[in-house]
C-alpha cells in the first residue's frame, strides 16, 4: 500500500511572537512506497513529528491531503479514519507508549483486540520472539527497560499486520546495541514488503534507509 502526501501543511496558533501563527510544516509532497524504508531526519523542532502525525491520521493538517491507497485520510470522519489507521498504519510513538494495566502480551495485541478480533497466539509469540521479548510476555511494562519497552511498541505496530509502519524516534534513548537491534528490525520489515517511515535524528539510521529526507524549519528536502 502506498501513502502519498500532497501539499501537506500545518500551522499552529501561537498567542505570542510576531505573528499569531507559525508554520510547522510547509507544503510537503511525499510518497512512501511499499517495500521501502524512508528516513526523515532533522533537528528537534524542525517539524518531523508533526509531519508523521499528519501522515498517520493523528493530526489534521491545515491544508493538503494524505492519500492512503486511493482514500483521502482527512476526508473521512474520525471513526473511519481511526479504523483505517488500525487496519493500515502501525505507529511506534515517541517515548514510553505502554498501557500499564496490561501485560506486554496484552499491549502487543491491543490493535487486534480493539476491534473485537482474536489475536493469533502463535503469530504473536513469534513476533515477541523476533523482537527479543518473548520471555517477558506476561510481565507488566513497569518491569521493562527502555529498550524492551521500545521493542514492545514495535511488536504492537507489527501485530496488526499493517502495511505501513511509522516509527517516531524509535531509538531515542537506547544504547548502541539496542539501537542496532531496532534499526535492523525495521529494515527487515521493509524487506518483507511493508512501507516503513523512520523519523529520527540518529545519524546511524541512514545506512538502513532506501531514501533519506531532511526536515529543516518545516521544509522537507530529499538528501
Amino acid at each position: 500500500m502506498q501513502l502519498v502526501a500532497e501539499a501537506l501543511r500545518k500551522d499552529f496558533f501561537r498567542s505570542s511572537g510576531e505573528s499569531n501563527f507559525f508554520t510547522a510544516v510547509h507544503e510537503v509532497n511525499f510518497t512512501l512506497e511499499e517495500g521501502s524504508l524512508v528516513e526523515i531526519c532533522g533537528r528537534s523542532g524542525s517539524g518531523k513529528t508533526t509531519l508523521l502525525n499528519m501522515l498517520s491520521g493523528l493530526l489534521t493538517p491545515t491544508s493538503g491531503r494524505v492519500l492512503l491507497g486511493n482514500d483521502d485520510l482527512y476526508a473521512m470522519n474520525d471513526k473511519a479514519r481511526s479504523r483505517a489507521r488500525n487496519r493500515s498504519i502501525g505507529v511506534i510513538p515517541q517515548g514510553q507508549s505502554a498501557l500499564h494495566s496490561l501485560t506486554v502480551w496484552e499491549n502487543v495485541v491491543l490493535p487486534i483486540e480493539l476491534y473485537g478480533k482474536r489475536a493469533d497466539g502463535a503469530r504473536i509469540d513469534m513476533l515477541l520472539e523476533r523482537v527479543g521479548i518473548a520471555h517477558l510476555a506476561n510481565v507488566r511494562p513497569s518491569e521493562l527497560s527502555g529498550g524492551e519497552m521500545r521493542r514492545m511498541a514495535i511488536a504492537r505496530a507489527l501485530a496488526g499486520d499493517a502495511p505501513i509502519i511509522m516509527a517516531d524516534e524509535p531509538t531515542g534513548d537506547l544504547d548502541d546495541e539496542n539501537t542496532e537491534i531496532v534499526l535492523t528490525l525495521l529494515r527487515e520489515i521493509a524487506h518483507a514488503g511493508r512501507a516503513v517511515l523512520l523519523v529520527t535524528h540518529e545519524a546511524e539510521a541512514a545506512k538502513y534507509a532506501d531514501a533519506v529526507y531532511r526536515m529543516n524549519a518545516g521544509v522537507l528536502e530529499r538528501q
Partner: peptide, 16 residues
C-alpha cells in the same frame, strides 16, 4: 492523557 493517546495510535476513535 498518554494512555488515551496510545489507544488513539492503536486505532481507537474519539467516540470509543
Amino acid at each position: 492523557r498518554r494512555e488515551f493517546a496510545i489507544l488513539r495510535v492503536a486505532g481507537a476513535s474519539r467516540c470509543r
